[in-house]
Lab assay of single mutants.
Amino acid sequence: VKVYLPNKQRTVVTVRDGMSVYDSLDKALKVRGLNQDCCVVYRLIKGRKTVTAWDTAIAPLDGEELIVE
């Protein structure tokens, strides 16, 4: 899953069964001094942002793009 992060940064996270968006992005956010409490995650669908819950399973999102703001 390709993830666009604040400050024009981006990362790619590996999809693993049983993991949530929260778990999958935890390290990427912490390395950048961010956490899930201060950010909102969106799914990018056909160029439009849709709010996605942090506890959403990451497996069904394989191949999609997320935006964290």
Rank of each mutant, 00 (worst) to 15 (best):
L5Q: 01
D26W: 11
M19E: 13
V3D: 02
A53T: 10
L25R: 01
I45T: 07
Y4E: 10
V21A: 08
D37M: 05
R10I: 15
G18Q: 07
S20D: 07
G33F: 01
W54M: 05
I58A: 09
L34S: 02
R32W: 09
D23Y: 02
D37A: 06
S20V: 01
L29P: 00
C39L: 11
R16S: 12
K8C: 08
L61E: 08
V3A: 03
D55H: 08
D55I: 05
V21M: 09
Y22R: 15
K30C: 04
V1L: 12
N7A: 05
I58Y: 15
L61V: 11
R48H: 13
N35V: 10
I45M: 05
R16I: 12
G18N: 08
V51W: 14
T52G: 00
G47K: 03
L34W: 08
L29V: 02
K30S: 08
S20Q: 02
T56R: 07
T14C: 08
D23C: 01
V21K: 05
A53Q: 12
R16G: 11
T11K: 06
N7R: 05
T11L: 14
N35D: 10
L44R: 11
N35R: 11
K49D: 02
T11N: 00
C39I: 03
D23T: 11
D17K: 14
L25W: 00
Y4V: 14
T56V: 08
A53G: 13
V68I: 10
K46P: 01
T14L: 09
C38E: 15
T11F: 12
S24I: 14
M19R: 08
K2N: 10
R32F: 13
R32D: 05
T52I: 15
L5V: 01
Y42D: 01
R32K: 06
V31L: 14
K8N: 15
G33D: 06
C38I: 12
Y4L: 15
G47T: 04
R10M: 15
P60H: 12
K49C: 03
V12N: 07
D37S: 09
V3L: 09
K49H: 04
Q9M: 10
L61K: 10
K49V: 01
R48N: 12
S24N: 05
V40P: 01
G63N: 08
L5I: 00
V13F: 02
Y4W: 12
V31G: 11
G47A: 05
Q9H: 04
D26M: 10
Y22W: 12
T52Q: 07
T11M: 13
E65I: 11
K49L: 07
V13T: 01
I58W: 11
D26A: 15
K49Y: 03
P6L: 02
T56W: 06
Q36A: 12
Y4M: 14
L34C: 04
R32T: 09
E69R: 04
R16A: 13
V40K: 11
D23W: 07
S20P: 03
S24P: 01
R48Q: 11
Y42H: 04
E64P: 03
L44I: 15
K49M: 08
V51D: 03
L5A: 03
S24K: 01
I45D: 11
D37P: 03
V41C: 10
T14E: 10
G33Q: 04
A59Y: 14
I45F: 09
D55Q: 13
V21L: 15
T56K: 10
D17R: 11
G33C: 03
V15H: 10
L25H: 00
D26V: 12
G18C: 08
D62K: 11
A53K: 12
Y42E: 00
V3R: 02
Q36V: 13
G33W: 00
Q9T: 09
E64Y: 08
T56D: 12
D17C: 06
R10A: 10
E65P: 08
Q36G: 06
V40G: 02
K49N: 00
L29G: 01
E69P: 03
R48W: 04
A59I: 15
P60N: 10
D17F: 11
K30P: 00
G63W: 02
R10W: 15
K8G: 15
V21E: 04
D55P: 02
V12T: 11
C39F: 05
I58V: 09
K2A: 08
T11E: 11
D23M: 07
R10K: 13
P60L: 14
M19V: 12
D26C: 14
L5E: 02
T52A: 09
C38N: 15
Y4A: 08
K49E: 02
V51A: 11
Q9A: 09
D55Y: 04
A53V: 04
G47W: 01
K30H: 02
E64Q: 14
L61Q: 11
V51I: 15
E64D: 05
P60E: 14
R43Y: 02
R43C: 03
N35L: 07
V15W: 11
T56Q: 14
K49A: 05
A53N: 08
Y22M: 10
G18R: 06
K30T: 10
W54N: 01
D62E: 10
G63R: 02
Y42P: 01
D23H: 06
T52Y: 09
C38M: 15
W54F: 01
I45Y: 12
D26T: 07
C39V: 10
S24C: 15
G63S: 11
K49S: 02
T11R: 03
T14N: 11
S24V: 14
V21Q: 02
T14G: 07
A28P: 10
S24R: 01
V12H: 11
R10E: 15
K30D: 03
Y22E: 10
V51R: 13
V13C: 09
D17M: 10
Y22L: 12
S20N: 10
A28M: 13
E65T: 13
K49W: 08
L44E: 07
E64T: 13
V13M: 01
D17L: 07
K46S: 12
I45W: 11
K46I: 04
V3G: 00
C39G: 01
G18D: 10
D23R: 07
R16P: 10
G63H: 04
R48E: 14
V13I: 14
C39P: 02
T14K: 13
V51Q: 13
R48Y: 07
M19L: 10
Q36L: 07
D55V: 03
P60G: 14
Q9R: 09
V40N: 05
V13E: 02
E64F: 01
G47S: 03
S24W: 06
V1R: 05
V15T: 10
V41T: 02
L61D: 06
P6Q: 06
Q36F: 10
V15A: 13
V31C: 11
L5P: 02
D62N: 12
C39M: 05
Y4D: 04
V21P: 00
R16N: 10
C39E: 00
R16Q: 12
N35A: 09
I58N: 02
W54C: 07
E64G: 08
N35C: 12
T50A: 08
N7M: 06
A59V: 10
N35E: 14
S20W: 02
A53I: 00
V12Y: 14
V40M: 12
Q36K: 14
V40H: 03
Q9C: 05
A28E: 09
I45L: 11
T52C: 10
N7S: 07
V12A: 05
V40L: 08
T14W: 11
D62A: 14
Y4H: 14
D17T: 09
T52V: 15
Q36D: 04
T56I: 05
G33L: 01
D62I: 13
C38R: 11
V12M: 08
K27R: 12
A59M: 15
D55L: 01
E69F: 01
V13Q: 05
L29S: 04
V12E: 12
E65G: 07
I58T: 03
P6W: 00
E65C: 10
D55R: 07
Y42I: 02
V41L: 10
L5F: 15
M19K: 08
Y22T: 06
V31I: 12
I45P: 00
W54T: 02
D26K: 12
N7H: 08
P60V: 12
D26Q: 15
W54Y: 03
Y4Q: 14
Q9Y: 05
C39A: 05
N7D: 14
Y4I: 13
R48C: 06
V3E: 03
R16H: 15
Y22A: 14
R32L: 14
A53P: 14
N7Y: 09
L29T: 02
R43H: 12
R32G: 07
L44H: 10
V13S: 00
K2V: 10
Y42Q: 00
W54R: 01
L5S: 02
A59L: 12
T50L: 04
P60W: 09
E69L: 01
Y42W: 06
N7I: 01
V3P: 00
V41M: 03
D26L: 10
I58Q: 00
